[in-house]
Nucleic acid binder design. Structure first.
Lengths: 124, 124
DNA sequence: CTGGATCCCTGAAGATACTG
DNA sequence: CAGTATCTTCAGGGATCCAG
């Protein structure tokens, strides 16, 4: 980002972002965050529900992503019970909801492209 | 992507995409592709122009990204002259242009967030 | 001027097994 | 049930030098 020959950047909590894109990508970049948020867009879900909805994601990655998303304030985690079996519910926060239109834009472009250039097939 | 209990995916040129998001991200994911396309959105630019607009990006990365974007059909490369100094112009293709609204959505969300939560400062 | 070639490093992601 | 703990692999990215 260069304004009047001066190099500028956004500074948020000691972190520099050289453009709006970089800021957004820090929230939804990487391989899994978008799709995780996407599955939470309508209603809260349990860990095991997400796991079965995302069979390609290892438990470890799911756990890491959920932790990161909660840390960014995009989702909230609530746990019930002090003995196994535990129940843990994840839901979007209002801040997380503000990202859904962005993800929707990304998803629908990809969907349209994939449907035009390829085909929907069964896997596994 | 699970439909009627059946796991599905898009198949495009032997490549599998488990959702629209993954497809889009294969084009604009990573640290540099979005911003590179963004700078080409209005008019074609030379390698050296892009280099000075993107001072944080090494020449190697710029070169790699331009090659990848051209390979994906998002930009076109035209070179003039058969002796040094060469002139090489990059411009968006129509396909590349179709992604600009997506990038715009991403950028404006990040911009709004950064302006609310942080500040614009000079760097370097 | 516009890159290519090479080496290196780190962090993201995967596999597998284990636990309160 | 909802995660941790290790170990490993690999691609993205950085630094530097080289070439037409």
């Amino acid at each position: 980002m260069i304004i009047n020959g001066q190099k500028k950047a956004y500074k948020v909590d000691e972190q520099l972002y050289h453009c709006g894109t970089a800021a957004t990508m820090s929230f939804i970049g990487g391989k899994w965050k978008c799709i995780t948020l996407w599955y939470l867009r309508k209603e809260p879900k349990r860990f095991s529900e997400l796991k079965s909805l995302l069979p390609d994601m290892t438990e470890k990655m799911l756990s890491l992503q959920l932790k990161a998303l909660a840390n960014d304030g995009l989702i909230a985690r609530k746990s019930y019970g002090n003995k196994a079996p535990y129940v843990v519910i994840y839901n979007l926060t209002e801040f997380g909801e503000s990202l859904i239109p962005v993800i929707e834009t990304i998803t629908s472009w990809g969907k349209k492209w994939a449907e035009q250039k390829g085909e929907l097939i069964e896997v596994d």
